[in-house]
Design a protein around this nucleic acid. Structure first.
Lengths: 339, 339
DNA sequence: CCCACGTTCGTAAACGCTTACGAAACTGAC
DNA sequence: GTCAGTTTCGTAAGCGTTTACGAACGTGGG
């Protein structure tokens, strides 16, 4: 075997005092004591690389903060950078909200020289190597995919929250808070909270913001109704069951516009008028919801834009950061003063 | 002089029956009977190229539909693709509308791997060669920059209209039409039209759509008031002068929200109430306008997104197309039925 | 001990472009 | 007709990656 090739630039890694120069595959090769071909194969998951070697290369790459140059890769590959969308199992189902977000995301991606390659909807399976980057939509606290991607050094963005990874999310907790404060201002001191199962991070953040604001106003934590699915019918059934026990709440915070939708129908069916007898506030501000719903608005387009911006940062090897997008209260016709 | 180099791929241009393969600099060099170095210099406006040769290369490039590969160029340049914004002289001044659009455009560009290099605000001067692509904001019918860019084969997008070039614009004419129809529905058959000078394409499109709808309803063309500047004070002065002659119109279509703003103030100053005595409808739907203005809304974010999408098409050498973005009526509190 | 085979890896070419360098051709003055 | 200076252009290296090819090594059977 010939000794590791020392090209004219091979010694750059030996003098790491260099200015802002990004590490190249040559630097990694020098550090790991292998050739550039091996580095490429190791990092791209090609086989024919000894596990030990692969590990050594990976370590060298992370040590140097190496990220392949997009232009060079595209030139060599003869294809644009491809990003795959990967939806967490069991998480966000194909709700209207979700589909809407996907459309915005697609637009932003398409305007970015990036190409959406694949949308895996129910993948517990770990991401494969065919794609250059990933957008993860939601994640369990101990999602194996996260660990997998960081280990492999693949650029990715998580839409959701997780400590230590590059992620973006609307400020769900603050949204819950806004909802509570609005209701409190209207004189409702014992509002209901309508949530749903599966109870994702999103739902618990909204709930905890809501409860925190109630606590600040010296109110007891809200009674929680849990719909068996995060949809209009789920919301309907949950509230209807509650009302059928004779309960008569004056206000309700639904974790989703769809849940709110169902709740309003249920209220109507037992003769309650909204907002006179029952104030209802939702979350998301879906344009589809025809009613005049008071809700917490999140800007899907901004969310999509931020996702793509972070993706570019990931591709460029910039440091990890988390983005939290503001939400705001949109006060419309389904909330009123307590009578 | 050595004969033109025939590399292993040099003969591809000789067999143009190839499938979707994009023309490379080699093909152009072969067709123009020069070396690739000369092609690069000729097309990039470097000097040291004989005018005749340059012309020959240009012709070869357009004949083959050649566009440099972005990845290769970035790899060689060691810098991202740079795009310059270039504002037409005398056209859109720095109105709030315009600034707002620039912000959206900047966001979309930044999310695109593209970098804004330069904003030339008052440039009759022709674009130089430092940039890889251009966004032109507005253009005269016989703007020399257009011809210049097409000749040079530089990728660009015009925000505005011009036959034969890649451009994007809101549907101003249809917007004017919507305004007229709204006023007609409310019973106003002799509305005023408040426009401004300089009378750009934008203004004439809005006016012609307005007049066309009036004509369809068998109404006479609207009386036109022309403000001496497209601002709130311009609008104020124009309408105030008109009202001071004793005229008492029942409705007015302002070509921009700012003009409308000024008009409303003028009406108030002579004791006219909006919308009871005078209905006012604007155009643009600026978020800044605090009043409850009925207006024609255009989606700035969509406009910016489309601009960037077209820019990518230009960079990729795809065929020219023009995009026209829909606008819609937002009916609020400054228009009412004629009494 | 030799040979065939599989595994692991290094070498170098290729992607399409820009540009430093130097060679050829032309210019004009002498 | 020479020669220096000026245009004009061709050659080749280099940008950072992927990957086909083949070399080196280890393994096992005979």
């Amino acid at each position: 075997m010939t000794p590791p090739s020392r090209t004219r630039r091979g010694d750059r890694a030996t003098a790491p005092g260099d200015r802002r120069a990004r590490a190249t595959i040559l630097d990694v090769a020098a550090l790991a004591q292998v050739s550039i071909g091996t580095v490429s194969r190791a990092l791209n998951g090609r086989d024919g690389v000894h596990p030990d070697t692969r590990e050594r290369v990976r370590r060298a790459a992370t040590e140097l903060g190496y990220h392949p140059d997009r232009a060079a890769r595209e030139l060599s590959n003869r294809r644009p950078t491809r990003v795959a969308l990967n939806v967490a199992h069991g998480y966000r189902r194909l709700t209207p909200f979700f589909i809407l977000f996907l459309q915005h995301l697609n637009d932003h991606l398409a305007n970015s020289g990036l190409r959406v390659h694949e949308v895996a909807s129910d993948s517990d399976g770990l991401p494969e190597h065919d794609d250059d980057a990933f957008v993860l939509l939601g994640a369990h606290p101990d999602d194996p995919r996260l660990d997998h991607l960081v280990r492999r050094g693949t650029p990715f963005v998580l839409v959701g929250h997780h400590p230590g990874v590059r992620c973006v999310a609307p400020d769900d907790e603050h949204g819950g808070r806004l909802a509570a404060e609005h209701l409190l201002r209207l004189g409702h001191r014992t509002p209901l909270h309508l949530s749903a199962t599966p109870r994702s991070q999103v739902f618990s953040d909204r709930a905890s913001g809501f409860d925190a604001a109630l606590a600040d106003a010296n109110c007891a934590p809200a009674t929680v109704l849990t719909a068996d699915e995060p949809s209009a019918v789920g919301g309907y059934r949950a509230l209807r069951a509650h009302l059928d026990t004779g309960a008569r709440p004056s206000a309700l915070f639904a974790a989703t516009d769809e849940l709110a939708q169902g709740a309003i129908t249920a209220a109507g069916d037992v003769g309650l008028r909204v907002p006179n007898d029952l104030s209802v506030i939702g979350f998301d501000d879906l344009p589809e919801i025809g009613t005049n719903l008071t809700t917490i608005r999140q800007d899907l387009d901004a969310l999509a834009g931020a996702t793509v911006a972070l993706l570019h940062e990931a591709l460029a090897g910039e440091p990890v950061r988390a983005v939290r997008l503001p939400v705001r209260l949109v006060s419309r016709g389904t909330t009123a003063e307590r009578r």
